[in-house]
Simulated scan of single mutants.
Amino acid sequence: MTEQAIELADEASMVAFGESLAALAQGGGVIFLHGNLGMGKTTLCRGVLHGYGHTGAVKSPTYTLVEPYETSKGRVYHFDLYRLSDPEELEYLGIRDYFDDESLSLIEWPERGTGVLPQADLEISIERAGAGRRLSWQYNTEKGRKLADKLSEVRVILP
């Protein structure tokens, strides 16, 4: 599987890319988001949620671990596992109930849930690239392959 990537200049580009991702991810799936603190994982999630039609604020669920969103285009779960001390804590959260074929799950810091989380359809890594960010992705499932192929055609157009 070939890694694909795009460089984004700023926060507005990250949100626009997230909106494009939302349009392509209709129908659900599991997306892992990798990157150090401050790389823009939550900003990307904000773009996805805007793309799903959410108009309110999007905050990082660092303390609650998950923030559910019911939108006109479907259900989105935004997970932030940064403060998770043991993957087994996810069992107490009822983690398995969140994953179904219709919901989109965006998971920040997925490595902290290793052994409990389902396999990701798509994994996106974010790293610094000059003043902007470089996003690279790879797929793990057939659903992820289709999404990755479509994502490779995305060109971020800013308003």
Rank of each mutant, 00 (worst) to 15 (best):
M1T: 13
T2M: 13
E3I: 13
E3P: 00
Q4M: 14
Q4F: 06
Q4C: 08
E7H: 11
L8D: 00
A9G: 08
D10M: 09
D10H: 13
E11C: 06
S13Y: 04
S13L: 07
M14Y: 03
V15Y: 01
V15A: 05
F17C: 10
L21Q: 02
A23F: 05
Q26Y: 10
Q26F: 11
G27I: 02
G27A: 09
G29S: 12
V30F: 04
I31W: 01
L33G: 02
L37Y: 07
K41W: 04
K41M: 07
T42W: 04
T43S: 12
G47V: 01
G47L: 05
V48N: 02
L49Y: 00
H50W: 03
Y52N: 05
G56T: 07
A57T: 15
K59I: 07
K59L: 12
S60L: 12
S60D: 11
T62C: 11
Y63A: 10
P68T: 08
S72Q: 14
S72D: 15
G74N: 06
Y77P: 00
H78I: 04
D80I: 03
Y82F: 11
Y82K: 07
R83W: 07
R83M: 09
L84I: 14
L84Q: 08
S85A: 15
D86K: 15
E91M: 12
L93W: 09
D97E: 15
D97F: 03
Y98A: 10
F99D: 04
F99N: 05
D100S: 14
S103N: 11
S103L: 09
S103W: 02
L104K: 08
P110S: 12
E111I: 11
E111M: 13
T114W: 13
G115C: 11
V116T: 14
L117H: 03
P118T: 05
D121S: 07
L122I: 05
L122D: 01
I126C: 10
I126H: 06
G130F: 07
L135F: 12
S136R: 15
Y139T: 02
Y139W: 14
N140M: 13
K143Y: 04
L147E: 04
L151I: 08
I157A: 13
L158W: 03
L158M: 08
